[in-house]
Design a protein around this nucleic acid. Structure first.
Length: 301
DNA sequence: CTCTGTTTAGTTAATA
DNA sequence: TATTAACTAAACAGAG
């Protein structure tokens, strides 16, 4: 029960599952991977609700990381000191929240057992420690050459569930140049895409806030963590609150198909620019290597 | 010791 | 209403 005069609604439970909160944190990070403590931090910075009962929800969140195949562990390399591994999103997990609800996915993402074993228990994981990463490379686009394996496991090409261009497909479907998604163009021009588009991420995840606020450790001020809208009709906000494009707020309940938040998404996924419009990050680069290795070893997918 | 990570088990709640 | 995703609790192991 929110008490009047004090933060009113902002400490109410956000309409996100732990999975979506975690995915949000990961996707909002420059490298698309975060250590556990940073996932905690992200959530606590933006959602006052989670500044309490930390033992309870953090236990649940850790359970989710381990239990759900959509999250994968990426070992630290020697030049990345710290505790625990990095957590990233599995490249094949698809659009987990395509139904528009961030509370419950339509289906739980599961990888095949063989792949699961290879991914989670292989002693070859140390493989990742040895490849073209330098302390200064964070946030930069990696080399094209290492990029070839991006389509590796899904026919038609993989689209990261929270990939920038997917978000663009939802919020900025008009932002296209020459038939190519903006990200593709930027990528080809050599721009470091993710940072430029952080505002797009913010529009997708209304409570993500601005990156610099996390960096400085200053909690995000009230406006970005106001939950009053969630108690109101989602559909109404859906059409009115965020202008001509997309919901500024996630839809807590399953929308009707015609109201689907991302009419352009399917087209994006089937689009002709599979390879070039994916976002490559240090995390995905390492994932790509993992997949290449698995293919090489003959792990079926 | 704390933190991270895995696992089992039971409950709650969304949705087909 | 049945199914199943999500949540919670808890035991436990290993790393640092």
């Amino acid at each position: 029960m929110p008490r009047p005069g004090k933060n009113s609604y902002s400490d109410q439970k956000p309409p996100y599952s732990y999975i979506s909160l975690t995915a949000m944190a990961i996707q909002n990070s420059p490298d698309k991977m975060l250590p556990l403590s940073d996932i905690y931090k992200f959530i606590m910075d933006r959602f006052p609700y989670y500044r309490e009962n930390t033992q309870r929800w953090q236990n649940s969140l850790r359970h989710n990381l381990s239990f759900n195949d959509c999250f994968i562990k990426i070992p630290r390399r020697p030049d990345q000191p710290g505790k625990g591994s990095f957590w990233a999103l599995h490249p094949d997990c698809g659009d987990m929240f395509e139904n528009g609800s961030f509370l419950r996915r339509r289906k739980r993402f599961k990888v095949l057992r063989a792949e699961h074993m290879a991914c989670k228990t292989s002693p070859m994981m140390h493989y990742f420690h040895h490849h073209h990463h330098h302390p200064g490379s964070v946030g930069r686009l990696p080399h094209f050459q290492s990029y070839g394996g991006i389509t590796c496991t899904q026919p038609g090409g993989f689209k990261h569930p929270f990939a920038i261009e997917n978000i663009i497909g939802r919020d900025y479907k008009g932002v296209v140049a020459g038939g190519l998604p903006l990200t593709s163009v930027m990528h080809h021009l050599g721009y470091p895409v993710p940072p430029q588009l952080s505002s797009v991420v913010n529009s997708m995840w209304p409570h993500v806030g601005v990156l610099s606020e996390t960096m400085s450790g200053v909690p995000v001020p009230a406006p970005s963590s106001e939950y009053a809208p969630f108690s109101v009709s989602a559909k109404g906000l859906y059409h009115s609150a965020s202008g001509p494009t997309l919901p500024a707020i996630p839809v807590p309940i399953k929308p009707t198909p015609s109201l689907g938040p991302m009419p352009g998404l399917t087209g994006m996924q089937a689009g002709p620019t599979q390879l070039s419009d994916a976002i490559v990050t240090p995390a995905s680069e390492q994932i790509i290597e993992m997949h290449q290795w698995r293919r090489c070893v003959g792990v079926k997918n």
